[in-house]
Amino acid sequence: MHPFEFNRHRRLRRSAGIRAMVREHHVSVDDMLYPIFVVEGENVKHEIPSMPGVYHFSLDMLKKEMDEVVELGLKSVILFGIPGHKDEHSSQAYAHNGIVQRAIRQIKEQYPHIVVVTDVCLCQYNPAGHCGIVDEHECVLNDPSLELIARTALSHAFAGADIVAPSDMMDGRIAAIRHILDENDFHDIPIMSYAVKYASAYYGPFREAAHSAPAFGDRKTYQMDPANGREALREAASDFAEGADMLMVKPGLAYLDIIRQLRDRYDVPIVAYNVSAEYAMVKAAAQNGWVDERSIVMETMVSFKRAGADIIMTYFAKDVARYLKEGY
């Protein structure tokens, strides 16, 4: 016997059964929001080089992907569209027969129980690659952009989207979207706001996937400085006051502290976006045999839940669903 007293914390780690019994946080397929990239054309299923296992799908190839989503038990997807042509007014973002609008209708017709979320932004749809209207001085204009962003959200609602998710970071866009949705009797369509979106280096592979890299400059005048935490709380407070039903933090893994702070302050669902470079780095390391992909992915998902996220938007969603089916 030791001549001193101490706590035996290991008692609750002694067996797999005990560890499962006292586990504080659990990952479920219900937590997963799976991103899908839809493109114009036919017979298109092209793997994105910097994101192994993630593809561009034309609508005729989308059904097979959705069949797999349903079979794995995933309940929700978020759509990103890559149009056939771009113009300075981003007209394909809000066109009745735009690529996202057609994808919404197809999915809701074939899989009515699937929750369809749509990314609402202009960057994929204009040659400048910016999230708002650009003037002759290459400045991104806030207020004139609000009308087009709101029109885009409305077009998605008319097409049958269950949730709209504005990602542009223009000031006032939640109020503009809530106003136009309510004015058109879409009172019940929730807004999942990209409330806290940093000007992050973690978006590189996504810009390849969405064909949305800026043609000039950067997005630092509207996306947030990674050094700022208090600013995140101000952004979230504005979106919440304007009518956001869910608050997202992007990127997720590098900003778990922000997720935690939002969880402590807001009694609405918090979304973590496990972004493209967070995905690509794990995939690359696993392909080189440097890490155990399954263990790293699931540990990452648990970290989002522990930080306070209710929903995890991740390119790993199908992998997570498989791991859970296998009894991870």
Rank of each mutant, 00 (worst) to 15 (best):
K325V: 11
L122C: 08
Y55P: 03
R102Y: 06
Q106C: 06
H130I: 06
E40G: 08
G217V: 08
I104H: 07
H2A: 15
V196L: 06
R23E: 10
V116S: 07
Y202V: 09
L122R: 03
F216D: 04
R294G: 09
V282P: 08
K86A: 09
H9G: 11
Q92M: 15
V77Q: 07
R306H: 07
G204C: 04
Y94A: 05
M169R: 02
A201L: 15
Q124A: 15
I312R: 03
I296M: 12
F186A: 00
E24Y: 04
G41L: 02
E299H: 05
A157N: 01
G217N: 08
A254E: 03
G243F: 06
E88G: 04
V275M: 11
R178P: 00
L247H: 00
K220Y: 10
H89M: 15
L12G: 06
T300S: 14
V117I: 15
P49V: 09
A280H: 06
V117Q: 13
V164L: 05
V54H: 02
E109T: 12
A153S: 07
G129F: 05
A285C: 08
A153N: 07
Y273M: 09
N142Y: 04
G132N: 01
E147N: 12
F6R: 12
K197H: 05
S76V: 05
E231Y: 11
Y266S: 03
N184W: 11
G308E: 08
S303Y: 10
C123I: 04
Y273I: 09
Y34S: 13
E40D: 11
I18C: 08
D67K: 11
S167N: 00
R234L: 13
A161F: 07
I114A: 08
M281T: 13
R230F: 15
R8W: 12
K220F: 12
I180K: 10
R13E: 09
R178A: 00
K63F: 10
T118V: 14
R178C: 01
Y222V: 01
K75D: 02
R178F: 02
L59H: 01
G172S: 01
I99M: 02
